[in-house]
Design a protein around this nucleic acid. Structure first.
Length: 260
DNA sequence: ATGTCTTATATAATAAGA
């Protein structure tokens, strides 16, 4: 049985992470596909050691604004077609979206917007959520198998963050943001981590400003969702909490079958 | 409101964003 390992990591600056022994970690971890968010790099600013990793191809969607946002995917599986957006300029121009079509599955690597800055950015985030779900449903309704990973910037349930009560009025744990994740699940997507782990205390992001990682005051805001028709293929789902270098740690899945 | 870190611009120090 062929197993494919896919990782997702908000690196908070891929050039900074590259300087922190990234290649040693990458060569030891040997993911088949590695999805980056927040590269903070233009297409030609991805460190060459990463861009030219032997056996891999790199796909990049960078923001119009330098040093901002940006997603990328390193893959040793052949990509048949790819898209860098939903076809909506205001979402596509921020370097948040990569949709990669493989043989028998489509992968979304998405850096969902942060809504903390202003009411306008919160609305942008909610609109982005809706635009994504529309695109994903469109593919799912055609029977296409989907994997969706990235920084969703919202903790789903109270067990998904250390301090739920004091954050219920802050973007990242607002009722409407959490309700959107409910909606995603009701449309036939599955939170793979919750297929294997029921309890709380498992986080993928910690506030750097308060050095929250030292005390493990974190949030689970990075996810791998799959369409229900892939449920039987998921071998494992995990959070690599020991991996340092960013305010997020990587998350991942192992998936069985001839999908890529 | 605060804290820290990465990056841009510019080339020292400030600003933005997360």
């Amino acid at each position: 049985m062929i197993t494919t390992k896919i990782l997702s990591w908000n690196v908070n600056g891929i050039r900074a992470v590259h300087k922190k022994n990234f290649m040693d970690w990458f060569n030891a971890e040997k993911p088949d596909i590695l999805c980056f968010q927040e590269t903070k790099a233009q297409d030609d600013q991805i460190p060459e050691e990463i861009a030219k990793a032997v056996g891999y191809e790199l796909y990049v969607s960078s923001a119009e604004r330098k040093g901002y946002s940006g997603v990328a995917v390193l893959t040793n599986k052949k990509v048949k077609q790819f898209k860098k957006g939903f076809g909506i300029e205001k979402f596509d121009s921020e370097g948040r979206i990569l949709e990669l079509e493989f043989d028998n599955v489509t992968l979304f690597n998405i850096y969902f917007p942060n809504g903390k800055q202003s009411k306008e950015r919160l609305q942008y985030k909610m609109d982005f959520y809706d635009a994504f779900l529309e695109r994903a449903n469109n593919l799912k309704d055609q029977g296409i198998k989907l994997i969706v990973c990235g920084d969703v910037n919202t903790a789903h349930k109270e067990i998904d963050l250390a301090h739920p009560k004091e954050n219920e009025k802050r973007s990242g744990f607002l009722p409407e943001e959490r309700a959107w994740i409910d909606k995603l699940l009701s449309h036939g997507f599955v939170d793979t981590f919750r297929m294997f782990v029921e309890g709380g205390g498992h986080y993928s992001w910690w506030d750097m400003r308060t050095r929250a990682r030292n005390r493990d005051i974190g949030w689970r805001i990075d996810y791998f969702y799959i369409s229900e028709n892939l449920k039987n293929e998921i071998k494992s789902a995990f959070i690599l909490k020991e991996v340092l270098g960013s305010d997020h740690c990587p998350v991942g899945i192992e998936i069985n079958g001839e999908l890529f």
